[in-house]
């Protein structure tokens, strides 16, 4: 990540949190960009592999979770997630789930139909 969001919602002391709304938003945007790209791409993969029903959804869940984990490890440098996201589970997993699922479904069906 760039220097802009490194000092985003830094913990100042044990309990006192100093938040910067702009950085939080920036982080969420970055995360969303990564998630958008990966879910569309994995939808393409699913279509090319001709995965069907449950296999495809499993593929999606696995890639979605692993992308979240990789995001934390690589972009948050394995530091404390709470430095970057206010409530990590909510922001990393739940918030964009249906959006990404819809995108995934779209490319999956599209490529699936094209390849057949």
């Amino acid at each position: 990540m760039e220097k802009d969001n490194n000092g985003n919602s830094t913990t100042a002391s044990n309990d006192v949190l100093i938040k910067s709304t702009r950085s939080i938003q920036y982080n969420n945007q970055k995360l969303q960009y990564v998630q958008d790209a990966t879910s569309l791409f994995s939808g393409c993969c699913c279509g090319i592999l001709q995965l069907e029903s449950l296999n495809g959804f499993t593929f999606f869940i696995i890639q979605y979770v692993s992308v979240a984990i990789l995001f934390v490890i690589i972009l948050c440098k394995g530091g404390k997630i709470t430095n970057y996201f206010l409530n990590p589970i909510q922001d990393l997993i739940i918030e964009n789930l249906f959006r990404e699922l819809a995108g995934f479904l779209m490319t999956w069906t599209f490529v699936y139909a094209l390849v057949v």
Binding site: D36, L40, A102, G103
Partner: peptide
């Protein structure tokens, strides 16, 4: 139905295409 599926799925795609803070 393809129309519906793509209508719901377009948001991520647009995010990638128009990755521009002013437009997003």
């Amino acid at each position: 139905s393809w129309y519906f599926i793509s209508m719901f799925g377009m948001n991520p795609l647009f995010n990638l295409i128009l990755n521009d803070a002013t437009l997003q």
